[in-house]
């Protein structure tokens, strides 16, 4: 039977890898938004990136300016605060190291390589260099995904994916919350002016540009994007899909350990509730409140998981 500490490390490994990957995609999309879109987005784009990663305070203390160079450096290679890609990878690697025996060689090597990309790097350079850097992180995290996929379908595999699913739900909810705030200042109706570039950015971050086109034929509308990110069972990074995955993984673990617990119950209730959710109603009754409540509940689920598997 798996050690509780091992389970904890695998779960956190999943969370940190997912977070690093999310940061990388967020930076990539923001660079595009800032530089390549029809109207350069500038400060707003970069301050929203900081808001999504909850690093505004750290960044202000750090004294940088809201430019691509400063924010990207801050979010990627700056080791002085926990919200940078390098710190996520460092913690992922430390957790991985602590559970070397539970990982396949390939999975470990992928994490170690991702970390080596950043180790002793202090500058990132211009937009093109940034995109290359971000691309290499994504490659390594994809490599890790692949390696995890190849691993035996056992507890190790499930705990990593459980961490990823919980982190993913949190990231998507936060992304939607922040972006929606910026795009729709209070009082403005959902059907108002559509900033195509901004909404496309959201889709890019969750790798859903193509999926969106397949699923919605009536063009880019905020209501559809919100629907996709909350209610789609098919988009892996949606809240619903993350909740489904969480239930599935907890079920597999319960089968292995022979007992269901508090976390199972919470996760099943959440998934059932999400299954009944209509995104239109959510928008009408207050998306911000809805997302905040989701993030809180996700945090409670995280703690229940810790208790159930004796991480404490």
């Amino acid at each position: 039977m798996m050690l509780s500490r091992t389970a904890s490390s695998l779960y956190w490994l999943g969370r940190y890898i997912e977070r690093a990957d999310f940061f990388a995609r967020l930076i990539e999309a923001t660079v595009r938004l800032d530089v390549m879109s029809s109207r350069p987005a500038g400060e707003v784009a970069w301050s929203s990136a900081l808001a999504v990663t909850e690093t505004e305070v750290d960044f202000a203390a750090h004294g940088g300016t809201l430019t691509q160079t400063d924010v990207v450096r801050f979010l990627t290679v700056d080791t002085s605060h926990p919200g940078s890609v390098i710190r996520c990878l460092d913690r992922a690697r430390n957790n991985a190291k602590a559970v070397r025996t539970a990982l396949s060689r390939e999975a470990w090597t992928a994490i170690n390589r991702a970390w080596l990309v950043f180790e002793s790097r202090s500058q990132v350079g211009d937009a093109a260099q940034t995109l290359r850097l971000v691309e290499s992180v994504k490659n390594e995290t994809r490599g890790f995904e692949g390696a995890v996929h190849q691993m035996l379908r056992n507890q190790s595999h499930w705990f990593i994916r459980l961490g990823q699913a919980v982190e993913r739900a949190d990231n998507t909810a936060r992304l939607l919350d922040v972006k929606y705030h910026i795009l729709l200042p209070e009082g403005e109706a959902v059907g108002g002016i559509v900033d195509r570039d901004q909404w496309t950015t959201i889709l890019q971050v969750v790798s859903a540009v193509t999926a969106y086109r397949w699923l919605y034929s009536d063009g880019l509308t905020p209501a559809n994007v919100i629907d996709l990110l909350i209610a789609s069972h098919d988009l892996p990074r949606s809240l619903t899909a993350s909740a489904d995955t969480t239930v599935e993984l907890l079920g597999l673990l319960a089968e292995r350990t022979g007992s269901h617990g508090e976390a199972d119950r919470m996760a099943r209730m959440r998934a059932a509730r999400l299954g009944r959710t209509r995104s239109g109603e959510v928008i009408a009754s207050g998306l911000h409140q809805y997302l905040q409540a989701f993030i809180r509940e996700n945090g409670q689920l995280h703690e229940a998981i810790g208790r159930q598997f004796r991480f404490g």
Binding site: M1, L3, S4, R5, Q155, G258, S259, F309, R310
Partner: peptide
């Protein structure tokens, strides 16, 4: 004993 996710072993 060691602490595991399913109790002590």
């Amino acid at each position: 004993w060691m602490r595991t996710i399913a109790g002590r072993v």
